[in-house]
Simulated assay, not measured.
Amino acid sequence: MALAKDAKIMNRIDRLTAIMLKLQSKRFVTIDDVAEHFDISERTVFRDIKALGEAGVPIGFEKDKGYFIVEGYYIPPVTFTKEEAGAILLAGKLLERQGDKSLVDEFESALTKVRAVLKNTQKDYVQNLEKYIEIVSPSVPVEKAFPDLFLNDIKNALVSHQVLSFEYYANYSDTFSSREVEPLGICHYANHWHLIAYCRMRNGVRDFRTDRITKLQVLDQHFDPSLRDDFKEHIFVRQMQEDVREVKILFKKNVARLIGDQRYYYGFIDEQKTTDGVEMTFMVGECDHFARWLLMFTDAVRILNSTQLEDQMQQLIDQLAAHYTASLI
């Protein structure tokens, strides 16, 4: 019984420490946030907050916002376990492979600060672990027409609700257009960062690939984001309904095993083995890009449910045939 009691006490001590860290990580933390995060009741949250206050941690409360640590009070530097430090190292390696230079530099700076507070044995662990980590990306061509230089400016504008002005390159027309937008959020998909913003020229929410943005300026104009649609709704609802469609492709077995991670660059979500091969499901936006990828597999693929993609493939095949026929004349 004594051991069980000691374990219970230690669990609460760990939880109180974690609650302090959570309070320090945000300006306000609600009771619901704490209760859900630690899987405890609201009554237990009240008791823990009271215990922290009695221990000398100056915790305040603001109606409709939550608890906060009074400004000027700082918790001593956080220590990490070797496993936590190793996880941060792995995250950094993955980030390096994304090619987002503007983010890699900041992460490396943060990782240096993490290393600085590690114990010597933990530093040795991370240093040795790094020798045995390598992230290998599939050799799929990624467009790098423009450097992705403006993520920091975009992040700052998102937080301060400031209007952005920039030149945007449209790949389909090979032209630039001037845009003035109200930034609503950023997301990462299809190997690129995307800015979701209300475009004042188009009078609607639009998706801008950040590496196609040039000459960006943060204007001295502010806007109210509550007057615009939620950017997450645009990503997960509108895009799925309007721009992206489900496509099923049957690959011959001898080809399917060679595809590897390439499929994840083209919206892969599922696969099923059949007697005829491997049926893969993709969420596809722009058919032309996807069709060009499928062409490399020649007669080893069959489109199962998209006449639009079949038409696009036929057009590409006709263009290819015309090109080589002309060269033989």
Rank of each mutant, 00 (worst) to 15 (best):
Lys113Asn: 14
Ile135Tyr: 09
His161Ser: 10
Lys248Asn: 06
Glu143Val: 11
Ile317Gln: 03
Tyr324Thr: 09
Leu158Ile: 05
Lys5Thr: 14
Thr81Arg: 11
Gln162Ala: 07
Asp64Lys: 15
Glu84Asp: 13
Leu90Lys: 12
Asn171Asp: 12
Val244Phe: 12
Thr175Cys: 01
Asp318Val: 14
Leu16Thr: 07
Val205Cys: 11
Arg212Val: 01
Arg27Phe: 04
Ile235Asn: 00
Ser226Asn: 05
Tyr125Lys: 07
Glu134Phe: 08
Arg12Gly: 13
Val57Ile: 15
Arg27Ala: 08
Glu108Asp: 15
Cys187Ala: 14
Phe107Pro: 03
Phe236Pro: 00
Val114Arg: 03
Ile235His: 00
Asp105Cys: 02
Glu143Ile: 03
Pro58Arg: 02
Ile186Asp: 05
Gly99Pro: 13
Gln315Thr: 11
Asn152Gln: 14
Asn152Asp: 06
Lys82Trp: 10
Gln241Trp: 08
Phe290Arg: 04
Asn171Lys: 08
Asp311Arg: 00
Lys63Pro: 02
Ile259His: 10
Gly285Asn: 11
Leu94Lys: 12
Ile259Leu: 09
Ala55Glu: 06
Pro141Ile: 08
Arg245Ile: 13
Pro141Arg: 08
Gln217Tyr: 01
Thr44Ile: 05
Val78Trp: 03
Lys144Thr: 04
Lys252Gly: 10
His37Gln: 12
Ile40Val: 13
Ile40Gln: 08
Asp39Pro: 00
Tyr265Lys: 07
Thr30Asn: 09
Gln98Asp: 01
Glu54Asp: 14
Pro225Asp: 01
Tyr168Arg: 05
Ala190Phe: 12
Trp293Leu: 10
Asp6Thr: 06
Ala4Trp: 02
Phe223Gln: 04
Gln312Arg: 15
Gly66Ala: 07
Phe107Leu: 14
Arg115Val: 14
Leu103Tyr: 04
Val278His: 00
Asp224Lys: 00
Cys199Pro: 02
Asp276Lys: 13
Ile19Phe: 02
Ala55Cys: 09
Asp153Phe: 13
Ile329Gly: 15
Lys144Ala: 01
Asp153Thr: 09
Glu71Ser: 15
Tyr67Phe: 15
Tyr132Ser: 14
Ile135Asp: 08
Pro183Glu: 06
Thr44Lys: 12
Lys5Ala: 15
Arg245Gly: 04
Val205His: 13
Gln217Gly: 08
Asn191Lys: 10
Leu94Arg: 13
Asn254Pro: 01
Ser327Glu: 13
Asn128Val: 11
Asp288Gln: 12
Tyr73Asp: 03
Val159Glu: 07
Glu286Val: 09
Asn156Ala: 11
Asp14Asn: 10
Tyr169Asn: 04
Glu54Trp: 00
Glu106Pro: 09
Glu83Ser: 06
Arg206Tyr: 06
Ile69Leu: 10
Phe176Gly: 06
Gln312Cys: 15
Pro141Ser: 04
Met283Ser: 07
Val244Tyr: 10
Ala116Gly: 04
Glu84Asn: 10
Ile133Ser: 09
Leu151Trp: 03
Arg263Leu: 04
Leu216Trp: 05
Ser160Met: 06
Cys199His: 01
Ser226Gln: 14
Ser41Ala: 13
Lys155Ile: 11
Thr210Arg: 02
Ser306Glu: 08
Ala321Leu: 15
Asp6Glu: 12
Ile259Phe: 13
Ile186Lys: 02
Asp32Val: 11
Leu118Trp: 06
Ala35Glu: 08
Ala110His: 05
Ala4Thr: 11
Leu89Gly: 03
Asp230Ala: 09
Tyr74Val: 14
Glu271Thr: 03
Gln272Ser: 14
Ile19Asp: 02
Leu111Asp: 05
Leu294Ile: 05
Asp14Glu: 13
His161Gln: 10
Phe46Trp: 08
